[in-house]
Nucleic acid binder design. Sequence first.
DNA 1: TATGAATGAGCGTTCATTCAT
DNA 2: TATGAATGAACGCTCATTCAT
Lengths: 198, 198, 198, 198
Amino acid sequence: MVRAVQKRTLQTRARLVEVAQALVARDGYAALRVEDVVAGAGVAKGTFFAHFRDKEALMERLISAELAARLARAGAGPVPDGVDAMIAALEPYHGFLASERYVFDIALRYSGAAQVAEVGPMAQTFEDCVTLVAGWIARSGGFRRDVPPDLLAEGVQAFAIQSLSLQFCALHQAEAGPARMRRYLVAWLLPPGPALPG
Amino acid sequence: MVRAVQKRTLQTRARLVEVAQALVARDGYAALRVEDVVAGAGVAKGTFFAHFRDKEALMERLISAELAARLARAGAGPVPDGVDAMIAALEPYHGFLASERYVFDIALRYSGAAQVAEVGPMAQTFEDCVTLVAGWIARSGGFRRDVPPDLLAEGVQAFAIQSLSLQFCALHQAEAGPARMRRYLVAWLLPPGPALPG
Amino acid sequence: MVRAVQKRTLQTRARLVEVAQALVARDGYAALRVEDVVAGAGVAKGTFFAHFRDKEALMERLISAELAARLARAGAGPVPDGVDAMIAALEPYHGFLASERYVFDIALRYSGAAQVAEVGPMAQTFEDCVTLVAGWIARSGGFRRDVPPDLLAEGVQAFAIQSLSLQFCALHQAEAGPARMRRYLVAWLLPPGPALPG
Amino acid sequence: MVRAVQKRTLQTRARLVEVAQALVARDGYAALRVEDVVAGAGVAKGTFFAHFRDKEALMERLISAELAARLARAGAGPVPDGVDAMIAALEPYHGFLASERYVFDIALRYSGAAQVAEVGPMAQTFEDCVTLVAGWIARSGGFRRDVPPDLLAEGVQAFAIQSLSLQFCALHQAEAGPARMRRYLVAWLLPPGPALPG
DNA sequence: TATGAATGAGCGTTCATTCAT
DNA sequence: TATGAATGAACGCTCATTCAT
């Protein structure tokens, strides 16, 4: 029989998450230390590891939760009818990924589910994002039809990561993230028209 | 007055790099320890830090050098005349990036030049790769013409990273890296033809 | 809630101190290395720094303990009845201070409690020494009465430090520590009699 | 024939001292690093050590020069005619010793000439101070006569050091340095009168 | 004298993680 | 579940000093 998780357990876990979120809000993700979390929650270090496999498990939970929330808000809006609308709709989602180098690193690492055994919440969220965008593409009339929507959606994700990566780069400072994203998506999502300017 | 770097300096630095490369060849990048490098080179620890800001600075140098060498070999070959040829030509380059999680992480982190102030060798190599691919696309007759070659080349890089990322992923184990890469590039590089199968 | 220090904690700390004392007995204080202490105690380096703020914290503890022990032995003896007896009674205490330049430096530095916030064991021991000497002076009949005993005792300490300092000095090699100490104390502690010889 | 020291040599040395003094004026003695001195003087590190045996040799020079200057000013004034006047006359000298923990430590260490072989400028200055005070005592009519002036002067130095030491001490914060110094000197320098208050 | 690369030896630190209680 | 002392394995650093040129 699967025993119901005890109430105290949930309380402890919730408190750990709460404290962690408060610390992150103040100092950012990269600065989070397990020691501070347990101190804030008033539990011992060992307790933390009874609830989370390791620190990254908490990190994945925090980051993917934030990401999922932003994605849900995007999904609740209207179907974007073009490249610019899509970029705007995804901005909160991508903006969070760009907010901190550490967040981007963790997201990237877990986007591909670090452990083969299980699909973590981060990988799930990335997957959900692809599904959402594929749905948009399928339902909207403004995109190319010669490539399946889910492949196009994966491309959107690839270009987003590329844009975010280059945002940290000295060679490409000139062009801001959204502008570069727009160039990619115009070429990737729109039906082939007249040649684009070089 | 800017003094020319002394000969001894270059010798010491070269020896450190040599030893590090030998160690990496034996145990991989993730296992490299500064202590072993200095021991092998027969210099003091302080000397190491007089040559490299920290361990990662050496790492960037080692990895970007390997990457640049593989890229140079790719550039020395014939211009690939299609998607499959291009994937094959870039395979050594991408294969190295996929060889070790640690390598991929460092490469990605430094691809966007950690410091805005200076463009490191890694960022330069990534840039060179884009330039090479753009040249291929421009000179070959088999690719779409409605998008400028350098934008297409950036897309190739984005899809490569996407493929490599997903290679570590539980959700997408089914499809190997090159196969996924092929799907992306067919859609991205070829002139629009009849609709692709979903 | 202030939890009682666990037994294991005390054991570990005691072992660290024991090992350090053994090493010091063999090689002196200046030669003590943290690495040897932890190796000898069979604990990790991190453990050392969980018990002592830094190496000097251990040093203060070791030296002040030795000093306190020697002081206690002096206090257990009979009340000295004159300058020579007092110098003799304090000899083990002062001799330890003079035994090693490093010991003298640490003692002097911590005698004034490096941190205003807390009174360390070293400062306490110095204080205890003054108290002890003041008691001797008060109870003995051979010393001047026109100056309060505790002020006289502070003077004894001042002259001791002066003597020890000059012991390391080229200008004053001729006169050994105890001899100089004697001149000081005769002038400082005895009731004024006929003029001393210049 | 003793060759006259070359002009360039003196210039370099003077520049090193100047730069060091400027740095000390800004950041204090403890923060002085050889690297900054040579950088400021525009010479190589090795050059520094061609002029000064080690860093402490420069330190001794800087500190003893300052101390000697302050002592000279004290010597240029009138002979103090009592304990309070003497304390006032020596205040600039003692104040400098108390200005920085590091200064006090170095002064104490070198007061006794670290090297037996040579009497450094610091030991000389301390000696000069004793001589000056002994002269004051001998020429003034207000001090005890049953103890030779130079012994009394050594005692003044011992009490000064004691006072300065205790100034860094938590146990004795209540009583300021000069007040404590006064108590010592009244008991030490004045002819025995009626018993002092306990 | 002047140069400056190299030395060296250990300190302090880090902090996620484990494990005996 | 909870505890928290202990672990560990490098890393980064320091910086006065030396020495071959």
